[in-house]
Design a protein around this nucleic acid. Structure first.
Lengths: 171, 171
DNA sequence: ACCTGAACACCGTTCAAGT
DNA sequence: ACCTGAACACCGTTCAAGT
């Protein structure tokens, strides 16, 4: 993404963006902030739905997978960018809210006996990091069938299945 | 990394690199190729050591963690770069060999009953992707203690512990 | 208040020319 | 065979100037 292309797309000069943002990074931080707000909203809709815990988990994972595939550059901006991670304010708040929705779903799964006992934050972080790693590899084109890893969704199902087996439902 | 800096560091002109590599990407692919060869060698040393399977697994994970921390840019070049992933030849061969060493260690762990039954390739890919996701987040500065995820090694121990529990040693 | 145009210091890359 | 210097088409950023 070049600032010159942004100006052109807006029908303005190549440095018109500077009248609205301090720098290229500031513009990207603005984009990341509104994107994280959307994502937090979508995650909240999943968490507050009437689906069973395991269903919410699948939907949440699906949300990240779809986002990464439909908007790969945006996904990288949100989840694979040091500058975005270093930001504070609204951006950080929305990012933490998104994670909190996910953590809450993990906790529901634990209470339903489909995920093992462990601090829900640590387990949620681990599951998210796994999805993130798989999506990063897919985005980089590292998903070779030779590695037995040709599908993010299947890999996440394997993970959740292995974590879930050995659990007993406490319903 | 700029080609001009490379030329300067070698005491040559800014475009001397073009006499040895077709482009900036080609130079980076060359660096990636030798780096993957080193990594494959280190992974092989771990696999053929006399440590128990679980110990080899810890050492292999530690190898990636140390590499990411000591040479973060190199780690990203090897594991987070579309151009590197798209390369073939020596580079691809060394990358696949590194993965094969890791897969073999995973299989040993399965046979020792410390990792669950599953296709070893799929399980190895999943475990590696998890480590990769955690390392990417650490490298981006996304490892906030607020998320209960302040340490890559601890998170991987949690993963391996959860995968291992429910297994019975078959020795 | 918002925008433009020229300019600056960088890039990767190309190419003619040197030894 | 290997290297250099000038040049080209890009960047992000700055700044004086326009309305």
């Amino acid at each position: 993404m070049t600032l010159r292309a942004v100006g052109l797309a807006a029908g303005l000069s190549h440095n018109a963006p500077y009248k609205h943002f301090d720098s290229r990074n500031a513009l990207l931080a603005g984009v990341a902030a509104v994107s994280f707000k959307e994502l937090a909203k979508a995650a909240n809709a999943i968490r507050t739905s009437s689906a069973p815990p395991a269903g919410k988990m699948s939907q949440a994972i699906g949300l990240f997978i779809d986002y990464s595939r439909q908007k790969p550059a945006r996904y990288r901006l949100l989840f694979n960018n040091p500058d975005t991670a270093a930001a504070g304010g609204d951006l950080k708040a929305s990012a933490l809210e998104t994670f909190e929705q996910f953590r809450s779903i993990v906790q529901e799964c634990q209470e339903a006996g489909v995920l093992p006992d462990a601090p829900s934050q640590a387990l949620a972080s681990l599951i998210f990091a796994s999805a993130h790693g798989l999506l990063a590899m897919e985005g980089n084109g590292q998903m070779h069938p030779e590695k037995g890893l040709s599908n993010v969704a299947d890999s996440m199902e394997l993970l959740l299945g292995l974590l879930g087996s050995g659990q007993h439902s406490r319903k």
